[in-house]
Nucleic acid binder design. Structure first.
Lengths: 157, 157
DNA sequence: GCCATAATAGACATCAATGTCCATTTATCG
DNA sequence: CGATAAATGGACATTGATGTCTATTATGGC
């Protein structure tokens, strides 16, 4: 129901939120989220063009969130790469329906509206704080590869 | 969010429900629903293989619903052509998550479950009886091209 | 049995989503 | 300035969704 690109974008953003506000390289994100790196870079470009993430080239650079996890909703991520396009006018192009969708398309649009709302109301911070018995994207909490102060910590492996 | 094929399948089924229990030819459905006829025949084959519709060749034949509009849900139609596939195991293939999805995939699956439920609870009869100000698929009620008794009525155009 | 009707099957065409690869540009560090 | 790190852009490959076309098969009426 959701495209592969949406899945990849959300994985990357969850990882970035987990590491926020530190930047992460595409390679780092790709490995952590098991997304093909070359394709991920395309997805990240879409996110950058929509101002969901910020990028910085060169040593010490990488990708980082523009907003804090508290301010960023799932919907903003989804709409950046594969917009949920609501039904505004009759898909059959019937005049006379105008904004009055027929019962079928009214129902379809309603379900899309519900999905849209669910995504709009969920922030990345909520995802990170949710307590299911599994951590987001991994078996253990992710290593924080850099500390806020700038000291680098090596991963345990 | 929903594929073109789902859209076409639902249009066809709504039309068939409107004409039920009379059979309709693919050509007739295609014109009424503005779906490319050759492609529609593919979609209808999927619906037949899932026993949503029944087909009859030759003169007087066509496509008809297997169930009554009261018994048929939108979900059965959708799942016949483009199944809503729920998330059952971790898409990253992480052991240890098992059926315990991480918060991200838990949320994604929840929205899919809601959509699934919405479709499961809506019957074709409800769609036909819904009173928005627009008729399903058309500006006016569809002509019933044949009557239950077998007498054929010419369309007014 | 013959003809008209209508579904069926399969080949083929087109396009968008997904995925890969490589050269180029921008940045930091020494 | 030179070396390294990292994103960027564009070309290309692959696959699945969408769409078209034609020959074949099944059915009912005469």
């Amino acid at each position: 129901m959701f495209s592969q690109t949406v899945e990849y974008a959300l994985r990357a953003i969850v990882y970035l939120a987990d590491q926020a506000p530190n930047p992460c390289t595409t390679e780092q994100i790709a490995k952590a989220t098991k997304v093909p790196q070359a394709y991920l870079s395309k997805v990240l470009q879409s996110l950058r063009q929509s101002s969901v993430v910020h990028s910085q080239r060169g040593i010490g650079g990488g990708i980082s969130l523009v907003k804090t996890p508290e301010e960023l909703s799932l919907l903003e991520v989804v709409n950046a790469v594969d917009p949920i396009c609501r039904i505004h006018t009759c898909p059959l192009g019937l005049k006379g329906h105008g904004t009055n969708l027929c019962p079928l398309h009214r129902k379809l649009d309603d379900t899309m509206r519900e999905t849209e709302t669910a995504f709009a109301e969920t922030t990345l911070a909520q995802i990170l704080l949710s307590s299911t018995s599994s951590y987001p994207l991994c078996n253990e909490p992710h290593e924080r590869l850099t500390q806020l102060g700038g000291t680098t910590i090596s991963p345990s492996n």
